[in-house]
Each structure stands twice: as structure tokens, then as C-alpha cells.
Design a binder for these strands. Structure first.
Lengths: 206, 206
DNA sequence: TTAATTATCTTACACGTTGTAAATTAAGTC
DNA sequence: GACTTAATTTACAACGTGTAAGATAATTAA
């Protein structure tokens, strides 16, 4: 009986090495300059890789960014799945997934500060937003039709726009401000905002 | 006594014409293709303007986008200021500013669908977020320290991250989905979300 | 270890883009 | 109608892109 994983073609170490060098070089360059100023030439040079070799792996720079975004999403999915086990209640799972995500970002802050913390590479924010929108939508399904949201006559899709935007925006702002709060603290604050938020009328008076 | 406005040098109509042609051309091109594929050549060609003339007005394409973003913010400020007069109460002003903004976006939907509705030109979203962050921060100041936010022990800066992200994200999602709700309706929904949002615990169970 | 396979390197080329210069033509201003 | 300024035309050097063909080096399988 074959016990080996079928999804392991075992890639040539040279390929892994080259791609890693290229990715690191691109992140470095994105830290230094705007994306319009980055050329395949510069990436290859910084990676100490021949320029022609770049084209053996990626069609062009946007293609490379797209593949890096794919990798990012894949990693995040893994991190979140691993944090799922042995959770006491379902309402806690949400918060713990959030904390795991923030911890993962903090552990790879150099990367995330560049790809999510700057406006240079919108594809990463785009992808993450798409993913989080799915989570928020699923959460709303869980909450069901008897929630105060439905009762208040709020359109589900608008609530999803609102909730997922607040989520990714809070994360991005946290990154841009150099992560001044711990993942646990930010998660707690986020939960508070979701429940207690803006219950007041603004102050009256001329 | 000089009654003329000092801030009116009265620009040459040729300049205005050329710039308008260039801007229209760029918006058209952004509708058709990704920004990396757009060259000064293509812009000039579509604008029926000589390529060299482009450089008499803008340093390069990013510079042009930056100036267009400046113009956008300026226009939005004007629109919002004009909606300020004759408002009954302060709490309504907020909502009316929001409606005016949405109406302005709907009236220029071709432009906004390209610059805010796609991920191609992050500088426009960036600028608008910055502006809205200011509004949200001012609103929180108005609400004061006795609000339920402060009482709940929520950091003011995090509340601003959350609120401004939800705001711009809702607008962008609305644009991306081809503005399926009227400005007034969306504003009402937004207000509901800000007050009633997510008061439930998620559904329990296995 | 040798022989195979495969990734990377080297050199080269055609083509498009960029930004600038100088002289000319056209449009707007007084 | 003379003056001023914007736009055009043509030209050029530098750079970036994407691809090709053959040589070299690293990896893997026998």
C-alpha cells in the first residue's frame, strides 16, 4: 500500500532557493521605493540571480505579486485552521482566530508592513479582504435571522460590507501604526467595538 | 479698493483643455486595462495630444494621478461644505454630509468606479480615507468622554480606525456593486449599523 | 560514480518607453 | 496686429522588456 502523500512532487531545491531570493529581494525593494520604480533588473540584481532566470518563474512583476498573494492567503488559512483545535465555545473561536491572525502578522511584520501597511501593493489587501468577507458572511449566517441586525431592518450585504471593512481596516491601521497593541488586547477592543459601538447620539447644542 | 479675487490668475484655456483631455484619456484607459500597461504614449494618443505636451503638465503618470487625487479631494470638500447650510440639528448634519458625498459619487460614477472601485489606483482611496478619518475623529470629539465608548474602555484611536474603515469600506463596496441602493437608503442603513450593530452573541451549539 | 536530467547563466537582439532638447507652428492675450 | 505662451514636430540617448540559443552547473537516479 502506498503511504506517501500524493501531493508532494518534491520540488528541486534550486527552484525553492531562487524563488525565495527573488521574493526577499522584492520585499526589500518595496520597502525602499515605490513599485513603479522597481524593475525585473533590480529584483534580479538584489537577489543575485540572473535577470533571465526571473522569467523562468514569473511572467512579470504583477504575476509575481499575484503568486506571493496566493502564498500569503494559503499561509493565513493554515495559521487559522491550526488555531481551531480545542476551543471551548463557538463564540470564542472567532476571537481566537483573530488573535492567531494578528500573531502571525506580528511574527512576519517585515513582510506584512510592506504588503498590507503601504498602498504599494493593493492586491494583498484585496485578497485578504475577500477572505475576511467570507468569514464575516459566515458569522452572520451563524447569527441567524433573529439577530438584532435583521430585526433592525438592516440589509445583510450592507452589514457584511460594513463588518469586513471595519475588520481589515483595523488590522491595516494597526500594522501602519507599528502594532502598538498586543494581538490579545486589540482583539478584545475589536469585540467591544462590535458590541458597544456608537450607542450615543452626538452631543447637542449650537 | 480691489474687489477682485486674488486667487484667480485666470488660466489659459489651452491649458485647461489639454489637462481635461489628458485626464479623460487616463480614466478611459484605466477602465480598459491595468495601470502597468498604461504608458504616456497611450494617454497622449487617446487624448489626441502630443506626447511631449504631457511632460509640460505632469512629471510622470504617478504625478498625474496624485494631482487628480488632489482635485478629487478638493471637489468633495466643496460638495460637503455646500451641504452644510440650513441643517436643523447637528446630529443630522453628519448624515446629510454622507448623503451629499454619495450623491456626488453617483453623479460622477464613471470616474469613481475607476479610481475607488478598482484596486488600480490606491492613492485615491488613500486620500479619501485620510479625509474621512478626520471626520470620524472630529465626530468622536463631539461625542465626548461620557459616551458609551469611553465608558466601555475603548481606545479612541482604535475606535477611529474601526469607524473610518467601516465608512470608506462601505462606500467602496457600494461603488463596486454598482450602487444598488440610493444614497439616502445607504445612509440610513449605515446609521443603523453604527448604533444597533452586532448586539447579539453568535448562536450557540455544537 | 557515472549518466541523466533540469535549473541557471551568458550573450544577444528587437522593440517599446522614458525624459529631454531645439526649433517651429498655432492659439490666446493686450 | 504685436506680443506672449502653449502645443507640435523631430530627434536622441538611456533604459526596461521579453525571448532565444547554447554553455555551464547543480540535482537526481542508475
Amino acid at each position: 500500500m502506498d503511504m506517501t502523500e500524493p501531493t508532494k512532487p518534491r520540488t528541486d531545491p534550486r527552484i525553492l532557493r531562487t524563488r525565495q531570493l527573488l521574493k526577499d529581494a522584492l520585499i526589500d525593494l518595496l520597502q525602499e521605493m515605490d513599485i513603479e520604480k522597481i524593475s525585473v533588473n533590480k529584483i534580479a540584481e538584489k537577489a543575485t540571480i540572473n535577470r533571465v532566470t526571473f522569467y523562468l518563474h514569473y511572467r512579470d512583476i504583477p504575476d509575481m505579486l499575484e503568486k506571493m498573494a496566493d502564498d500569503m492567503i494559503e499561509e493565513i488559512q493554515e495559521v487559522i485552521e491550526q488555531s481551531q483545535d480545542a476551543k471551548r465555545s463557538i463564540e470564542d473561536a472567532d476571537s481566537h482566530r483573530f488573535i492567531s491572525l494578528l500573531e502571525h502578522i506580528a511574527a512576519n511584520s517585515k513582510f506584512y508592513k510592506v504588503v498590507l501597511g503601504t498602498k504599494r501593493t493593493p492586491i494583498f489587501t484585496e485578497r485578504l479582504l475577500k477572505m475576511l468577507t467570507g468569514s464575516v458572511a459566515a458569522r452572520m449566517e451563524l447569527m441567524g435571522a433573529d439577530s438584532s441586525i435583521s430585526k433592525a431592518g438592516i440589509q445583510k450585504d450592507i452589514a457584511i460590507w460594513y463588518g469586513s471593512s471595519a475588520l481589515i481596516g483595523t488590522i491595516v491601521s494597526w500594522i501602519r501604526n507599528d502594532m502598538p497593541y498586543s494581538p490579545t488586547y486589540l482583539a478584545r477592543q475589536f469585540t467591544l467595538l462590535r458590541t458597544h459601538q456608537f450607542l450615543d447620539q452626538p452631543a447637542k447644542g449650537k
